[in-house]
Simulated scan of single mutants.
Amino acid sequence: MIKTLLLSTSFIFLSATLFFAGNGLATEEYDEEAYGPEKTIEWNKPIKATFDHKTHTMDIGLECSDCHDDLFEMEAGVAEENEDFTMKAMAAGQSCGSCHDGDTAFATDTNCAACHSFSKDQIVWDEPTKAAFSHTSHVEEFGLECESCHSEAFTMKKGAAAANNDFTMAAFKKGQYCGSCHNGDDAFDSATQCESCHFQPTDKIIFTQPVKSVVFDHSIHVEKAELSCESCHKEVFTMKKGTVEGQELIISDNPVEKRKYLVNLHKKYCGTCHDSSQAFGYLTRCTVCHIGVKGLKELTGEGKKKDAHGKSGH
């Protein structure tokens, strides 16, 4: 019994010793002379990234001489000033890439989140049509990795996609850019659920051709009538500003020819819904859309300007 008691006491003493020793190690002060600067280094070039000396020296066991001065000069800001401080150069084995080669440590084109933080702000594109992209929803909600899109689908450079002539909805349909995932199998097709990415126009569209003073309001059709974008685009209307206005107005003095042309025009566009079945017929309630010269002036504010000028004596 005494032997058992001694063993129990020894075990408790040993556990306590290890506990306090462990706490002592945990609270050991960070030695900057031995392990490098404690503060995380933040780079904005080639893209925003962070570097932690503690992870590389104290945790992994690298010496200062492993990186300085052969790879990095021991002076703040020097790396970013070098023109060859790029992801491409790293992939070729320079700077971070001398270790992050896939053998010594993970390659520079993998495990991106270890150094890089994705933007919490939405990316807003104006081309091919105004749309927004959220890294948060794709990374945190759907669990995608940075390399899921970069750099095969998108070059990791701000503005690079919009600068390409082939950054179009037609290209998406062929599996490029967003279409590499938004193909109807991996994610919803790029020709559907438009409102997930695209902004609904808030301003009324005013047509001057092929018929003058015609107004279209997206909010009435989307919010009140609960139509989706694909109800009209692309089978009825191409999603490109000015496409309908590009239609040539018939030049004829024959009223029969003019009427025939306008009827066919209505049937081709608005008449696909405004057929007296789905919505009021295009031959009725004309002034809902055709507001005339006076209505157009009121809508654009020209009428108010003239009234104001008249009252002020101009």
Rank of each mutant, 00 (worst) to 15 (best):
E248I: 12
E73K: 12
C178D: 00
F133Q: 04
T300W: 00
H68S: 10
E245T: 05
K3L: 13
G175A: 06
S190G: 05
K240E: 15
L18T: 08
T238I: 14
T192I: 05
D253K: 08
A89F: 00
S137H: 02
L265K: 10
P255A: 00
F133G: 09
I41M: 06
P201R: 09
E29A: 15
L25Q: 04
E81Q: 13
C181S: 07
L14E: 03
F20C: 12
L5H: 03
E152D: 14
F154D: 04
E127I: 13
F167M: 09
I205A: 05
H198V: 03
A161K: 07
S196K: 12
K297A: 13
F188R: 07
H138A: 13
T17P: 00
C99E: 06
K3I: 14
D109H: 08
A79S: 14
W125P: 03
K267D: 07
C194H: 08
Q209K: 15
E141Y: 01
H290T: 15
Y35K: 10
C232T: 12
S148Y: 03
C146S: 10
A131G: 04
C112F: 11
L144A: 11
A34M: 11
D203P: 01
H68R: 11
K297W: 00
Y261L: 09
I220Q: 06
F280L: 09
T17E: 01
G179L: 04
Y269V: 09
G143C: 08
C112G: 05
K120I: 09
T104C: 00
A191K: 11
T287L: 05
K174V: 07
V256A: 07
E145Q: 11
V214Q: 06
Y177F: 15
K120H: 04
F72C: 14
A21F: 08
S8K: 05
V222Q: 06
I251V: 15
K268E: 13
D217T: 15
A171I: 10
G175N: 08
L7S: 08
Q278D: 10
A91R: 06
V139D: 01
K204N: 11
M1K: 07
I47S: 04
E226I: 11
K260V: 15
A16P: 02
L227R: 08
V256F: 01
V78N: 06
I291S: 06
I291E: 06
E257S: 09
T284K: 12
G301K: 06
S231P: 07
H274L: 13
T168F: 00
D59I: 15
D121P: 01
P210L: 04
G281W: 02
E63I: 12
L71E: 10
D189T: 07
I220V: 10
D126W: 00
H116F: 03
E226T: 14
F280Y: 12
M87R: 02
K305D: 11
E38T: 10
Y261C: 01
S252C: 09
D307R: 09
